[in-house]
Design a protein around this nucleic acid. Sequence first.
DNA 1: CAGTATATCTCGAGT
DNA 2: ACTCGAGGTATACTG
Lengths: 220, 220
Amino acid sequence: MRLVIARCSVDYAGRLTAHLPSAPRLILVKADGSVSVHADDRAYKPLNWMSPPCTLKEGDDQRWTVENKAGEKLIITMEEILHDSSHELGVDPGLIKDGVEAHLQELLADRMETLGEGWTLIRREFPTAIGPVDILCRDADGTTVAIEIKRRGEIDGVEQLTRYLELLNRDPHLAPVKGVFAAQEIKPQARVLATDRGIDCVTLDYNALRGIEDDKLRLF
Amino acid sequence: MRLVIARCSVDYAGRLTAHLPSAPRLILVKADGSVSVHADDRAYKPLNWMSPPCTLKEGDDQRWTVENKAGEKLIITMEEILHDSSHELGVDPGLIKDGVEAHLQELLADRMETLGEGWTLIRREFPTAIGPVDILCRDADGTTVAIEIKRRGEIDGVEQLTRYLELLNRDPHLAPVKGVFAAQEIKPQARVLATDRGIDCVTLDYNALRGIEDDKLRLF
DNA sequence: CAGTATATCTCGAGT
DNA sequence: ACTCGAGGTATACTG
């Protein structure tokens, strides 16, 4: 990892064209060849960047050119180098996450009765031609139910579930298939759309589901 | 801007919980108080971060705690400081962009005849209850047409246009309203869905549109 | 390789 | 404060 603090101007030409007028900035050159240009605010997003794989050519005229295979170019014109240091970091062991959609899916699949007495799992990630349905199950009456799970339930998720339901209901072995939209939080617009389409909405309590799971584990 | 290279472990507790085992990393502390943790790969996304506004408390036990108003916490446990430097950068003049959807919309609105002879603009950003339609116009027959413009046309855009068309066609003053999905590039699946719904697809040539515009400007 | 869904998405505009 | 849409989205995963 190379850290350069420099007064520079930057031009990007690729999916769009963009220009940064001259100012002092941080330029990060990483071991994978990627380059990013940061201002002194905003944690997440660089002002400009080139994702790997890409190659950096350091011209003798203070002009750095970073290019990728698609022909996108990032040109950094150095006007004054204020700091320049390099550091060996090695490969990062990576992030361990918890609480995402995958975990909600596992937890709910393990406790279908959360949705109602007598509900039973058919399978998780039920495959269809347009992608896997998060959970396919049966309700107490034996009716097939497709469940779409999101952390935050928005309109896109309802559209997605609608497409799955259309497809599943064409299969005479499965039809009729009902829909359940399950999320930790469901946006009002998504709820309205879902209800309008006869899709039930369920708010999932992540901590409660996890608590149940913990209790289960304690039994063994 | 403060640059710290350190062997550290990191814990985030907020919208999810996440843990980074001990390894050498770059920690960026910016003038707005934001903090980000970078590995030696990937230009765009930090391993971990806290967006502003937030406050950093540097404990005496090598433990940094960054917290925001929502109670999200980023805890960095420093094990070995390998580099630590600070730099004054000042406020960045900011990015100048060109070529985004807004510009496509302007260009197309100025040259409706790109879509066919006799096509006329009604208005850009035509307001509806569920949001503005990019362009509302009339074709050569006088039929109302709603246009959705994207840089890259994917399924979401077709769904969005479909919702607009449903709504617009309920208005007897406008109905029947046809749909046109216009983008620099249209994904095959989006094209299939659009065609299936009777929506025409148009590929926009940004450079050609801009060229026409440049010619126009040259006349004055 | 392309297509799809996710993201601590971020960010900005509009209400 | 909230919602909605756009992003050079990036990134991971699946066929």
